[in-house]
Amino acid sequence: MRLPNIARRWLAAIALLMLLLHLSPAHAGKTLDQIRQRAQLVCGVSTGVIGFSSADSQGRWNGLDVDVCRAIAAAVLNDPNKVKYVPLNAQQRFTALQSGEVDLLSRNTTWTLTRDASLGLHFTAVTYYDGQGFLVPKRLKLTSAKQLKNAEICVQSGTTTEKNLSDWFKAQGIKVKPVVFEKFEASIKAFFSGRCQAYTTDASALAFIRSKEAPKPDDYVVLPELISKEPLGPVVRRGDDEWFAIVKWVIFALIEAEEYGITQANLEQMKASPDPAIQRLLGGAEDTGKLLGLERDWAARAVKAVGNYGEMFQRNVGSASPLKLPRGLNALWNKGGLMYAPPVR
């Protein structure tokens, strides 16, 4: 459902007011108890980013961020479908989490110091290592972002993007002019109509914009530079350490499952594996669930619902998806990437 702008501002204002007036349910009890009581996880997602969180024509949500919600619902409620998705725009997202409207924000959100230290939130773990890049028309014959002197650059507001843009070009001593749009659709329409000489956003989205939104994808090229680090991951409210630990460790379990080669398909056979690490992860040996306040087979349930991290990646953004993004930084640590989970033991 897409509400008109004014209505969404009002909703944001009302959410804020709820926070101010202490009417929110955030203090009613521990997050886990509440989720169990209502038998539903409330997950804040984006208003539509293909591959990460977007609703299909039947209104079913899917994507990498959505799979994180499903995995947590499976671990906590034993049913990946017991999730209510709340689409939030960039302005609303933190307020919605602060006010207790959502249990978890799983919405391609960059982990930064300001956000971690001043918003009353905790970033849990990184589910996607992204970076900001540039899409340019081929006719400009550019090979590097350093050639964008005096260029006008179309950008969508409400993200870390504007600041990165300004920082990077300042460091290079190059002047550029941002043209900032509130809506994704307007920003790419302006770019493809030739209003700007470049479009900038996270590299994960550039590939999709080029292949799906460009009138002729071959007329556009993504420049090689990535000008920022964008570690994206789920966020929880401060003040509930148990819930913070659950979200963090479900994600670690998904990464660990990939490392041990446990997949959605071979999960049942793996349960009989003699490897103690696999036994521990899947609940065959000691009961790690008890420590988190979950059932013994919490990790197995998560893997059964969405597969391991690698499977999630391939299905949503990787080779089995329309985005066809390479694993790159998001490969496992022992395969040249940065995905590294502390040991589940």
Partner: peptide, 11 residues
């Protein structure tokens, strides 16, 4: 709007 996003000071 941009300021709000950079600083998180919504109110």
């Amino acid at each position: 709007n941009t300021t709000l996003n950079q600083t998180g000071r919504a109110a």
